[in-house]
Design a protein around this nucleic acid. Structure first.
Lengths: 352, 352
DNA sequence: GTGAAAGCGCTAACAC
DNA sequence: GTGTTAGCGCTTTCAC
């Protein structure tokens, strides 16, 4: 058993109140008593129990973090930001991943509430229809969403503008000369943000007068990108010359799969991701992507939550800037190949 | 303020003890009283406070997790495993990353001990000389290391045999015909396991009669692989034809950098990583690597810790099997180039 | 500047 | 089966 405040008090010959005052720097303690108490603390290796303190102050200086998965580094980056900010302010993190399972969300939040976390930071499956968020609101437990982009107002969120970003992705590809665009995404049901990116992408493609991009929904968790793309790139000429992927991990897999299908990126097909994972800049070709400031998002969400906890600052929705990183995986559209030319009425039989 | 057990008791017209018994399924409660209590619980939205319970049971059903960084997915994978196992057993996780900063380790563990976590799972900078581990031992707080591979006995660890794995990496490359081996690693001071892998690799190279591999230590956190490799691959013929990297993230960066330097992987240079990140199988070329069962390591460490907490099972060191994944990034050594042949005594002037 | 004492929300004897 | 009660380790009035 660790030493208690009472042990310290009796060893130092003072009351527990004095020990408490010294430990928390609340109230004055005369120098010589302070020294005596300090000595007792060291002698006993006294470490104040947070659980005792929590009970009496009814706050825990802890935050709950709920994200879909740690396997995607984009969330890991955000958690890194959360971690930094929380540690700097002497808060502790309780953590769990839901594995994109909405039932899990409920159980986890229940557990965190039992532990009386002071607030939560979470990415949920569907922020506009989320029992979990409703619960938090009912109980008056402060929370901030990250990555999510709810349509409804009043759900404090730190995010980027996924729709605008999707549009910019389309614009960037069009600007490179691409007209046949495509998108590859994980299950939209598990990601409101992928949906938003798609909407923006389609809007952008239309605005540029491109034919409606093909949208390929794949199983992100158990991914076989080669299988998914083969039907598309089996025959030449009709498949998209540029693919926008709903996240970087997927984009990396798509680049790899295209390579294995014998296609060159970006000469044959351009690929653009979303997230801005650090590793993308190290690959060859470097990964073109929309960069979202993940670490900063985590940090900002945490800062906001902690400000709220130590004041009555209201929680807000903050949209952080994203940016386009035009890596080598997105290049100029190829000149139409002879095959394609042949298929095109204007060039019929030209090579015969 | 959330409802307390007392609120429930008085609403149901029973004592707190009865409520407690019902909530914890300890002791019998007559059916009709149970129903009344249950109704009161629901009416009030009662959620038992873990902090009250923690104080009275002096255990928290929470585990502390301390790892160097979440930015490297290998740790994220382990945390995923820890998370799964902990949740299955109804334990909660407190989490922090140290960013490879040993001073942080101390502060974090102090915080976790203040919260009275029941045990810890950690990867430390130097397990053989770790004030933090000494502290845990002194205080009798159970812990299990993961990834670390301490030389000293008595530090319970779940790991792979990094030395053997390093040796096998060398053997695999030699078997492909490589003789000029090299290794790229992050700072060894921050990673006992990278050191072990190197030792094994050097041993393997020597055993195969290869010249001592060149070992390149790079800044993993702020990596510029291209700069690091350029001096090596500026001139042809002398640089290693196969590079073993201390982890997959590094290997991916090395493959990318080689590509940007105009070298083909694996035709010009073979690359082998370490970790077995899932994304490695998606890349093109797929990443050759030594696979360690990260998720399983996390799970095993957690299982062991929890078993220990609910019995008096002693903590042990467990070495899990690794395996070689011979991806496309490691291929047969090129036939010696004319230049090299000329340099080799046996073939002197043969082509002249 | 210091101490006494009343809780914070729960569990676990122990008594009935 | 159920209730009473004494803590668990701390903070925080309120006296002095």
């Amino acid at each position: 058993m660790p030493a208690t405040i009472r042990d310290v008090a009796s060893l130092a010959g003072v009351s527990v109140a004095t020990v408490s005052r010294l430990v928390n720097r609340s109230g004055k303690v005369r120098d010589d008593t302070a020294a005596r108490v300090q000595a007792a603390i060291e002698a006993l290796g006294f470490r104040p129990s947070a659980v005792g303190r929590n009970l009496s102050t009814s706050q825990t200086r802890s935050l709950g973090v709920v994200i879909p998965s740690l396997t995607n580094p984009v969330f890991a980056d955000a958690v890194a930001g959360i971690n930094e900010e929380a540690r700097a302010r002497d808060y502790t993190l309780m953590f769990t991943a839901t594995n994109y399972d909405r039932a899990e969300e409920q159980g986890i939040v229940d557990a965190f509430l039992a532990y009386r976390v002071d607030g939560l930071i979470l990415t949920v499956a569907d922020p506009d229809n989320s029992p979990v968020l409703d619960l938090l609101e009912r109980e008056g437990v402060p929370y901030v969403l990250i990555y999510n982009q709810p349509n409804a107002r009043g759900r404090p969120t730190v995010t980027v503008d996924n729709v605008a970003a999707g549009r910019e992705a389309a614009e960037a590809l069009v600007k490179l000369g691409h007209r046949r665009l495509g998108m590859v995404a994980g299950r939209f049901s598990a990601s409101d943000r992928a949906l938003a990116r798609r909407d923006g992408f389609l809007t952008g493609a239309r605005a540029a007068g491109c034919p409606d991009p093909l949208v390929l929904e794949v199983d992100f968790v158990d991914l076989n990108a080669e299988e998914a793309l083969r039907p598309l790139y089996g025959r030449r000429g009709e498949a998209p010359s540029a693919l926008f992927c709903s996240n970087d991990l997927l984009a990396m897999a798509v680049v790899g799969a295209l390579g294995r299908l014998g296609l060159n990126v970006p000469d044959d097909v351009s690929v653009m991701g979303f997230d801005g994972l650090a590793i993308g800049t190290q690959l060859h070709p470097t990964l073109a992507t929309i960069v979202q400031p993940s670490r900063e998002m985590g940090r900002a969400a945490t800062a906001q939550l902690l400000d709220r906890l130590s004041g009555e600052v209201p929680l807000r929705t903050v949209t952080l800037p994203h940016s386009l990183r035009l890596g080598e995986s997105a290049g100029p559209a190829a000149k139409p190949s002879p095959t394609e030319l042949r298929d095109s009425p204007a060039f019929e039989n030209e090579e015969t």
